[in-house]
């Protein structure tokens, strides 16, 4: 009994770490730093999935943890690093407008997420149920980041962070989706990042920069 108590405590610590990373992403200006933070987020997910797998005794979860490690801690950050090197964008930083306001909005989102998750948390039986609110908060914070940023690479990292939050939500509420579905999602994600990589080059070729403020001409007037 003591054992599972410890694991539950550890999971809560990790969940808190995930939330902290989300806020750090919201405030960080350098692209390279964002990629590192994203890799850390993946690592946290990997550890938490392993812990859940251990405590629930589901071998399937180990596979999904392995998939997380491969894809989100190694492959995607590596691809993104390569990409920004090839694009010469590794030292890019962007002007953030009004960090305090963004942070306040983030806080409000966290409270909203907990409110939304409350009824589901009370029904779930998993060891991780209390972290569902945090998972939802991670999703919403990533969404906020996508809205407030103007650089293409940053938006993609926001998109990937959102997927991390979704994955965390799946493990919190249900011990993960069926394996085939997870493989499918992982494949879609990988292909998506490849396509975006191609895209970055096309955008830079046309606009000489990855700043999305160039991409605002299609509007209703």
């Amino acid at each position: 009994m003591h054992h599972s108590e410890l694991i539950a405590q550890l999971l809560k610590v990790i969940a808190a770490g995930l939330l902290l990373i989300s806020f750090a992403m919201l405030a960080s200006r350098r692209t390279q730093q964002l990629i590192t933070l994203f890799a850390w987020q993946g690592a946290m997910l990997f550890v938490s999935t392993c812990l859940v797998a251990y405590s629930s005794g589901l071998t399937e979860m180990y596979y999904s943890a392995g998939l997380t490690l491969l894809l989100k801690v190694i492959a995607l950050p590596w691809i993104l690093h390569r990409l920004i090197h090839r694009l010469g964008a590794q030292w890019d930083s962007e002007q953030l407008v009004n960090v305090p306001t963004t942070m306040m909005a983030g806080l409000a989102l966290v409270i909203f997420a907990f409110g939304l998750a409350q009824p589901i948390t009370s029904m779930a039986t998993t060891i991780t149920r209390h972290t569902l609110g945090i998972a939802l908060a991670v999703i919403l914070l990533a969404f906020l980041m996508m809205i407030t940023r103007r650089k293409a690479v940053t938006q993609v990292i926001g998109f990937l962070a959102m997927e991390n939050g979704l994955f965390f939500a799946a493990t919190s509420a249900t011990y993960g989706m069926p394996m085939v579905i997870e493989l499918g999602i992982a494949l879609d994600l990988l292909v998506g990042v490849f396509i975006l990589g191609i895209f970055f080059f096309q955008i830079r070729e046309q606009f000489d920069s990855l700043d999305l403020s160039n991409l605002e001409s299609l509007k209703e007037d």
């Binding site: 969404f143 996508m146 293409a152 938006q155 998109f159 959102m162 998506g192 396509i195 975006l196 895209f199 096309q202 955008i203 046309q206 606009f207 999305l212 160039n214 991409l215 605002e216 001409s217 299609l218």
Partner: peptide, 16 residues
């Protein structure tokens, strides 16, 4: 330029 912008918007909005 316009088609890249359209595709980017398509990807991000539908992705979200």
């Amino acid at each position: 330029r316009a088609s890249l912008e359209a595709a980017w918007k398509y990807f991000i909005l539908c992705g979200v």
